[in-house]
Simulated assay, not measured.
Amino acid sequence: MTTASTGTAATAVTEAGARPLHGKVALVTGGSRGIGEAIALRLAADGAAVALTYRSREDRAAQVVKQIEQAGGQAWAVRADSADAEDVWSGVAGTVERFGRLDILVNNAGAGVLGPFEGLTLEDIDRVLSTNVRGPFLAAQAASAHLPEGGRIISIGSCMAEHIAFPGGTLYATSKAALTGLTKTLAKELGPRAITANLVHPGPIDTEMNPADGESAPMQAGLTALGAYGQASDVAATVAHLAGEGGRYITGASIAVDGGFAI
């Protein structure tokens, strides 16, 4: 497990002002790029100290940390593979050790293997399920020991868990659908402690992994009601709402940020 703390990021952190998460600490898994990066930056802009994990892109993680620090926030990046149980536990423990507490867990790290059902290997299955299902389960389990009253667990799913518009996503959809059961059960079990658990399902979002000018982009955009890709900041805004005071009475919910993909 290694850490990073320097670099620049493309997405700006807003100026200090109303900071609804001031004094809170958030852990965002897979926070070095794409949706995770946008979530880390938004939570920091809202006043939270942010820990973020990354698997391989130390340089990108360092950029996010520097962006937050340059805006006057606190951030820390730690190498932790969400498919590795020890890394998951260390990421949570390291966050608490670094910042003294943990208020918000965002299970964002994910892996995807798309292709015909018949061609999926055991290695593919183990990698995706370990990252997308076991990782969030273990992170929530570890975080629950530290979350105070009013704590938040927010997981990032996928529109493919609700609507299968094209073949080839069997394994990915299976893994993301599992988060619905996890989220609803966490909400019931942790509700007596006033800890909420919610699930956000992004649709086609413009990221490096799925760019809005990519080969399949016209098809994906055409499957949405709005006829367009969303931005990572759209997902981050919903996560920020759930993490803040406005989300205190929302739990066990699955919220689509998908431009109408799943309708």
Results as ranks from 00 to 15, higher is better:
133 V>Q: 12
36 G>L: 03
186 L>G: 04
119 G>T: 09
84 D>R: 13
120 L>R: 11
196 T>H: 05
78 V>Y: 09
134 R>T: 06
82 S>G: 06
11 T>F: 05
161 A>S: 05
4 A>P: 09
214 G>L: 04
136 P>M: 02
95 T>P: 09
242 L>A: 03
182 L>E: 00
209 M>L: 15
134 R>H: 01
65 V>K: 00
250 I>R: 06
102 L>P: 10
171 L>A: 12
72 G>I: 02
33 R>P: 03
63 Q>Y: 00
76 W>T: 04
232 A>Y: 10
231 Q>P: 04
87 D>L: 08
224 T>Q: 06
114 L>I: 14
80 A>S: 06
207 T>K: 03
184 K>D: 08
75 A>D: 02
138 L>A: 13
4 A>T: 11
221 A>Y: 01
197 A>M: 12
197 A>S: 15
183 T>V: 10
232 A>S: 04
200 V>D: 00
218 P>C: 05
218 P>D: 12
188 K>H: 15
144 S>C: 11
93 A>F: 15
3 T>S: 15
228 A>G: 10
113 V>E: 09
126 D>C: 01
255 I>W: 02
3 T>L: 09
73 G>T: 03
257 V>D: 01
40 A>E: 04
32 S>M: 05
46 D>I: 01
148 P>A: 02
222 G>P: 13
126 D>E: 10
117 F>S: 15
210 N>Q: 15
146 H>Q: 10
228 A>C: 13
86 E>K: 13
232 A>N: 06
155 S>W: 03
4 A>Y: 08
42 R>G: 03
198 N>V: 00
226 L>V: 05
58 E>K: 11
208 E>Q: 08
142 A>D: 01
107 N>S: 01
242 L>H: 07
6 T>F: 12
119 G>Y: 08
201 H>F: 10
159 C>G: 11
136 P>T: 03
24 K>T: 07
160 M>I: 12
10 A>G: 12
130 S>M: 08
231 Q>I: 09
150 G>M: 01
11 T>Q: 04
116 P>A: 12
197 A>F: 07
47 G>S: 10
41 L>T: 03
198 N>L: 05
254 S>E: 08
245 E>M: 13
31 G>K: 00
151 G>I: 00
250 I>S: 15
83 A>P: 02
260 G>H: 10
77 A>M: 09
103 D>S: 11
202 P>F: 13
157 G>A: 13
247 G>Q: 04
135 G>H: 00
117 F>I: 12
93 A>C: 14
234 D>T: 02
1 M>N: 07
70 Q>T: 05
